[in-house]
């Protein structure tokens, strides 16, 4: 009887122990599974199509550039411009400052309004990158400016590369909002009336022939008109003096700042240098033709020839290819940067 009970007790104990062990094994096996760590999704950075800068970043850039410009304006310090300016605008503004300093007159064209009407932000991932900023009109009712900020490389900052005064009453093409961003164009963009490079060259020729007939594909604008008038008047004066004059416009097609508009066209901002050689007749002196030239000429001894270097910046809108479509300028800037008696 006792043996029986012992056997039964052992059997029961065995059952209990085996039950516990089995359950623990099974349950522990389930419980041992931990949560795996997540893995980042492998996406290439180039697949990103977000704007290169956020609006806050753009504002910060503008503030810094404005601060630099303002500081330089206040001190009339050309060197101060070098931190945040580049390209034609650096040359133009330096000359303007120099002129201001010598003539003691402020140039209203140097005013840059602080209020921004539109920002055009690029979305491509490569360098150089450009941001187009369109300001509102100035306090004295001058037309708005088109600013071009350029970041040449990653280790560089955005600099004010170009500034053109928009023509009054001009209609600019539409661009994508900064949260979406616009694509940057290239010099060889197709699908347009002509490539941006061709458009710039053609416009330079039009500037060359400003007092004569301009090419058909270029729309006549006030800049060309004023240029033509200037040339005509200078020509008259030079001819009266039995002198000669010539102006050669050289576009810089390697450094175009192009932004694609929403309708498929390109807004091209190009630098066109021009050299104006004026020779007076025998026994005459070639004098600077304007106050600016005079300020640049300074105290040089006038000779019979004078060479004045101009930096022209033009903003062209190249529309998509269509019948009777023409390239038109939306803004231009022209500033003598050097006047030298030869």
């Amino acid at each position: 009887m006792t043996n029986n009970k012992k056997t039964i007790a052992h059997r029961n104990l065995f059952r209990v122990v085996s039950a516990v062990a089995l359950s623990a094994c099974v349950v522990g096996g389930i419980g041992a599974c931990g949560t795996p760590v997540p893995q980042p999704s492998r996406q290439s950075a180039s697949a990103q199509v977000t704007p290169s800068v956020t609006v806050e970043q753009a504002r910060r850039i503008e503030n810094q550039i404005y601060a630099c410009v303002h500081q330089a304006d206040q001190k009339k310090d050309v060197h101060a411009l070098q931190t945040r300016l580049s390209g034609p605008e650096l040359a133009i503004r330096s000359a303007q400052l120099q002129i201001e300093k010598s003539s003691k007159k402020s140039d209203p064209r140097m005013t840059i309004p602080r209020s921004i009407r539109q920002r055009v932000v690029p979305i491509n991932s490569d360098w150089p990158r450009s941001i187009f900023v369109i300001t509102s009109t100035t306090a004295d009712q001058q037309s708005g400016r088109l600013l071009v900020f350029n970041q040449q490389k990653a280790h560089d900052n955005y600099r004010l590369w170009g500034l053109v005064r928009l023509f009054s009453g001009i209609r600019l093409p539409q661009f994508e909002v900064p949260s979406i961003g616009s694509k940057q164009g290239t010099a060889q963009d197709s699908g347009l009336v002509m490539t941006p490079q061709q458009a710039v060259r053609l416009y330079a020729r039009a500037m060359q022939q400003a007092d004569k007939t301009i090419p058909a594909k270029i729309e006549k604008d006030q800049f060309l008109t004023s240029l033509g008038d200037l040339e005509s008047s200078v020509q008259k004066g030079v001819a009266a003096n039995a002198g000669s004059q010539s102006q050669v416009f050289t576009p810089d097609v390697s450094d175009l700042k192009i932004m694609r508009s929403a309708d498929g066209g390109d807004l091209v901002v190009a630098r066109i240098d021009s050299v104006w050689m004026r020779s007076a007749g025998e026994g005459r002196q070639a004098q600077p033709a304007s106050d600016a030239e005079k300020a640049l000429f300074g105290g040089q001894k006038a000779t019979s020839s004078i060479r004045v270097r101009y930096v022209n910046v033009v903003a062209l809108y190249v529309p998509p290819a269509a019948k009777n479509a023409t390239v038109r300028a939306v803004g231009a800037e022209r500033e003598p940067v050097e006047a030298k008696a030869l």
């Binding site: 040449q152 490389k153 450094d255 050299v275």
Partner: peptide, 21 residues
């Protein structure tokens, strides 16, 4: 872009033209 960090100067380069840093 590094090679064209300097703007292509026109025919007569002006040495007095201020250079960007």
């Amino acid at each position: 872009s590094d090679s064209v960090s300097e703007p292509t100067s026109p025919k007569d380069a002006n040495p007095e033209q201020p250079l960007e840093r």
